[in-house]
Design a protein around this nucleic acid. Structure first.
Lengths: 117, 117
DNA sequence: TTAACTTATGAATTGTTATTCATATGATAA
DNA sequence: TTATCATATGAATAACAATTCATAAGTTAA
């Protein structure tokens, strides 16, 4: 079999893989929305801060250096997409990273920074 | 030491961690921009397709089911952020995932889908 | 139950990003 | 060198998201 024919077969095999393993439009939209929730500097800052452990809104506001209202909106966005979760402790609401997958993402992202580029 | 005092100290320790480990504004902006590049349904679709192996533009266009121009713009965005890379093979340009970190991200994302939520 | 504190929300403005269409560029083969 | 195929780009419109300000809602202590 010639190289170019082999290559063509390989490409077809990959296309099959790509088409078969493609998630549904709904799953895809949700996944994309979750990435988008992470992909905003202030919200990413919040997540990096939370990767050290749970924090209340006031502390998060200090950590990201914004104003309280903005941070609260950002927290809502992250919570709506189940990137973070929260619990109440008296007057305060304490936020934390929702699950291990998200933490892995944030860690990989951090690594990426410390890598070289 | 009372529990509430212990907790307060813990929070202060976390704040220190959060503030100290926070990347520079530039790094943060770049990281966020890279997440944003991933966080669009068509671009995510492209990346999921490429996680099966390299593909040319025409095949990618079929895989994401869009039009050629749109896909090309999306590829440019991904390439500009070094999420994907490309090589030319005759008339065709063949795209692939840029590095292992990105592939890990995509894999974690896929897992997340197959998990339960 | 009122005052003080912490967090959340709605609405408006402003800023960003995606998609489309038309066309340009780059590569090959006749 | 021209015709054809594959991909890229610019400019415009259309869709979306972020930030701010004002204010509301929950929680505690006096």
């Amino acid at each position: 079999m010639s190289d170019s024919v082999k290559e063509k077969l390989e490409h077809e095999e990959r296309m099959r893989c790509a088409l078969e393993s493609m998630p549904s439009e709904d799953d895809l939209a949700e996944l994309a929305a979750r990435f988008k929730a992470i992909s905003e500097p202030s919200r990413l800052k919040i997540l990096l801060a939370l990767s050290c452990g749970e924090l209340c809104v006031e502390h998060l506001t200090q950590a990201v250096g914004g104003n309280q209202s903005a941070v609260s909106h950002q927290l809502k966005t992250l919570k709506d997409h189940r990137i973070i979760k929260c619990r109440r402790a008296g007057k305060q609401v304490i936020y934390s990273i929702a699950d291990g997958h998200i933490l892995t993402m944030i860690s990989v992202a951090k690594e990426h920074l410390n890598c070289h580029d």
